[in-house]
Design a protein around this nucleic acid. Structure first.
Length: 516
RNA sequence: GCGGGAGUAGCUCAGUCGGUAGAGCAUCAGCCUUCCAAGCUGAGGGUCGCGGGUUCGAGUCUCGUCUCCCGCUCCA
């Protein structure tokens, strides 16, 4: 089976067993929007808990918040999103490739600079020690010509971007005779604007309303509350603020199931540190986060770091944790050194002092920030794709059989234990109900009495239930039950009175947290 | 946006030459069996994505349209 087929089966399985449904399906769906079903929401909540507790419980100096999705519009001016997330796009009609129009122009400008540098180097060789680079740059006719043209284009581009003048951007591309690197042609479409932030109106009367944005990242909710948390929590640097919440990006192309959605959920932690110590903490969090992933037990070779060479406007170092999905190694989490970019800009735009007085050094400063930002939906997909197994089984009579099993770590599984009476008579259902009533306060349990026992086992394999408890005639005599293990399909007989203790040991998130 | 693929029952799919809708699984009710899916009987479930055209007659031919999935620049 190819990876693509496997991925398709995984998507079908997700729907079939109540993990993920296409949004608004009865109306033909909505592109790249998905809903989490009855099992999906449990798995998702368990992942959230694993993350949340690994942050807030295991670190005394990390606390959580839950900021609103709506934020003051100036937030996004300060964060750089208003400027940086307005991408003018253009398509080449021959190669069918899509480009960011400003990037095309920037590449052209870079080319001109390369040309100039080449000229300078040539001249340096020619003139030897007597070479005056500055003078040459100012006087050489060829260099000054290219420089002038380059500066003019740059000026036009900046102005056009500021005024959102798309036809002008198209004209620049035409004037510079920029060709598509793939097709080599200059057969371009019009330039179109893709605003990555969703707009909405605040206020019930539309003409009085202000345009606000749905947040494109949760981080800013942390930054604008930095001072509130620091003061009210009497936090001392270094300290962190964690948050789980929805974010929205009007992606140009949103694809690959729940991997890239327009509405998605992030789990972010911003860690505030003393300037100059950011690299130490950057390395610390890279290791911590990788360890969190590996503890789930899907295999260390499924993960790798990817270092960003090209950095975002706010970062001075950035690495991704990538996981090997059925469609290749893809980013699940980013660990970014964000410098003091965000807090400084909020300080500037708000006029509020966002500084920290460090009693150890006796100085005030704007803290530096290390960000860990993980996609919850991506982690969900990670768990599902790593857990999905199709197994061939040889039965006692020699015939072969197949089963689909989700080997989800027990602590994250939507249903922890399924409770079955072996027969639907002889008082077994009553006994099973009694055991379930006792355990349901501590574990997500499901009771099933329909169909043969084998069918019930398989149904729970398919949703990843790690343990099935079966009540048989012997239970009536000595109060023992069998535990059937999902991964090995083996059974073990234990006293019913010990179930709580055994299950607590096997399914608690605490034990996962201890291994990080 | 462009290119490719696909829309028939909850799921997987069949449907011949254009003749009026089928199977398996699943669901529900009952019977039988009882520790690893597929025993028996019965029931429910369909505007064949949508709209027009050709035809006595369209799931099938034709035109249009919509939606979903995959690939391409961005990111968590």
């Amino acid at each position: 089976m190819t990876q693509e087929e496997l991925f398709k089966k995984l998507i079908a399985h997700s729907k079939e067993y109540g993990f993920v449904f296409p949004s608004s399906e009865i109306y033909d769906g909505l592109s790249a929007v998905y809903d989490y079903g009855q099992n999906g929401v449990e798995l998702k909540n368990n992942i959230k808990r694993y993350w949340w507790e690994s942050m807030t419980r295991l670190h005394e100096n990390i606390v959580g918040i839950d900021a609103a999705i709506f934020m003051h519009p100036t937030t996004w001016v300060a964060s750089g999103h208003v400027g940086a997330f307005n991408d003018p796009l253009i398509d080449n009609k021959d190669s069918k490739k899509r480009y960011r129009a400003d990037v095309l122009i920037e590449d052209w400008i870079q080319k001109q600079e390369d040309k100039i540098n080449k000229e300078v180097e040539k001249a340096r060789k020619r003139f030897g020690d007597s070479f005056n680079e500055e003078l040459y740059r100012q006087t050489n006719p060829r260099v000054t010509e290219i420089t002038a043209k380059k500066d003019e284009v740059n000026h036009r581009m900046v102005e056009a971007l500021q005024q959102n003048n798309l036809p002008e951007i198209k004209k620049i591309i035409e004037d510079c005779e920029i060709a598509c690197p793939i097709s080599g042609t200059r057969n371009w479409t019009e330039v179109r604007q893709f605003n990555l932030m969703f707009e909405t109106k605040l206020g019930s009367v539309s003409d009085e309303a202000n345009t606000i944005y749905l947040r494109p990242e949760t981080a800013q909710g942390i930054f604008v509350n930095y001072l509130n948390v620091q003061k009210t929590g009497r936090m001392k640097i270094p300290f962190g603020i964690a948050q789980i919440g929805k974010a929205f990006r009007n992606e140009i192309v949103a694809r690959q199931f729940i991997f890239r959605m327009r509405e998605f959920e992030q789990m972010e932690m911003q860690f505030f540190v003393r300037p100059g110590e950011e690299m130490k903490w950057y390395e610390y969090w890279k290791e911590k986060r990788m360890s969190w992933h590996r503890t789930m037990g899907f295999g260390d070779d499924k993960y790798r770091f990817h270092k960003h060479e090209k950095l975002a406007h706010y970062a001075n170092a950035a690495s991704d944790i990538e996981f090997e999905f059925p469609f290749g190694f893809k980013e699940v989490e980013g660990i970014h050194s964000r410098t003091d970019f965000d807090l400084s800009n909020h300080q500037k735009h708000s006029g509020k002092k966002l500084q920290y007085f460090d009693p150890e050094t006796g100085e005030s400063y704007v803290p530096y920030v290390i960000e860990t930002s993980i996609g919850l939906d991506r982690t969900f997909l990670l768990v599902l794709s790593a857990a999905y197994h199709e197994e061939k089984i040889t039965k006692e009579d020699g015939s072969t059989d197949e089963r689909v099993v989700l080997k989800i770590p027990p602590a994250l599984a939507p249903v922890k234990l399924a409770i079955f009476p072996l027969l639907k008579k002889d008082g077994l259902p009553e006994m099973a109900r009694k055991i379930m009533d006792d355990l349901k306060f501590d574990f997500a349990c499901q009771y099933e009495e329909k169909d043969t026992i084998g069918k019930r086992y398989r149904r729970h394999d398919a949703i990843g239930t790690p343990f099935c408890i079966t009540i048989d005639h012997q239970t009536l005599e000595d109060e023992t039950v069998t535990i059937r293990y999902r991964d090995t399909m083996e059974q073990e007989r234990v006293p019913a009175s010990r179930l709580r203790e055994i299950m607590t040991e096997k399914v608690s998130i605490t034990n996962l947290l201890k291994q990080i």
